[in-house]
């Protein structure tokens, strides 16, 4: 089975798992008293946010290893992780406002998670733009690695600065769309969702990686790998 096919299978399984999560979350998980049904957005929003950030960290780590080992597979992986990270960031940035509107009364607030994800989104876009702007594959891999490492190192600062910024600004008066202390049935749903998103990440990255592999084989092969 080629890498592409493996990736497709994993993705299909992941989507089926996600469908199961949908059913469980929508029909078999209790409605949260204070926030109402809209709270269930949490089951999608938070796992997506976790993977948005993890994907960025992986891009950075791949970059570090690439600079020392110069293995083009690492660069391919970084490229894939960045693209998938962008997709997950889009999910966070769309579900966030949809959740925020009924809870906070406004589409956008500069709350910690949304703001951090927005910055991550810009990091991803910049990373992908740089990749698109460099012709030579070796140069591209090196520049991308440098930017990816810087992006990864920025993540803790994003958290720190946004956290400091928030603690001085009035919290949403009504409720915060964060996890209420989770009763076990909600926790289980959330964990299933996290598992589904993990599988989605793996399936997507595998396919995207396979795509780079194919593209490199057809033209402009990265040196060191035919």
């Amino acid at each position: 089975m080629s890498l592409t096919q493996k990736g497709r299978w994993i993705t299909v399984v992941a989507l089926v798992c996600l469908a199961a999560v949908y059913v469980r979350a929508l029909a078999f998980t209790p409605v949260e008293r204070l926030q109402g049904p809209a709270q269930k957005i949490f089951y999608l929003h938070v796992p997506a946010a976790i993977w948005t950030e993890t994907a960025m960290i992986l891009v950075g780590l791949a970059g570090i290893f690439y600079l020392f080992l110069k293995d083009p597979r690492l660069d391919r992986f970084a490229e894939a992780s960045a693209e998938v990270g962008t997709v997950f960031a889009t999910i966070v940035l769309t579900t966030g406002p949809i959740w925020g509107k009924p809870i906070w009364g406004t589409w956008w607030t500069w709350d910690a998670r949304l703001t951090s994800t927005l910055l991550l989104f810009f990091l991803y876009v910049g990373y992908l733009l740089v990749r698109g702007a460099v012709r030579d594959p070796v140069l591209r891999a090196r520049y991308a690695a440098v930017l990816g490492i810087c992006g990864m190192c920025l993540v803790p600062f994003i958290h720190m600065s946004v956290f400091l910024f928030r603690t001085l600004h009035p919290q949403p008066i009504i409720l915060k769309p964060s996890a209420p202390s989770l009763p076990s049935s909600m926790l289980v749903t959330w964990l299933f969702s996290l598992a589904a998103f993990t599988l989605l990440y793996v399936g997507f990255v595998t396919q995207r990686y396979a795509l780079s592999l194919v593209r490199d084989a057809h033209g402009g092969a990265r040196p060191g790998h035919v």
């Binding site: 810009f122 910049g126 733009l129 702007a133 920025l154 946004v162 001085l168």
Partner: peptide, 19 residues
Amino acid sequence: LLVVILLPFLVPPLIGAVQ
């Protein structure tokens, strides 16, 4: 490109500086 990739990096120090 310089501006686009740099801006996210300016946000944390900017927050600190302004505050």
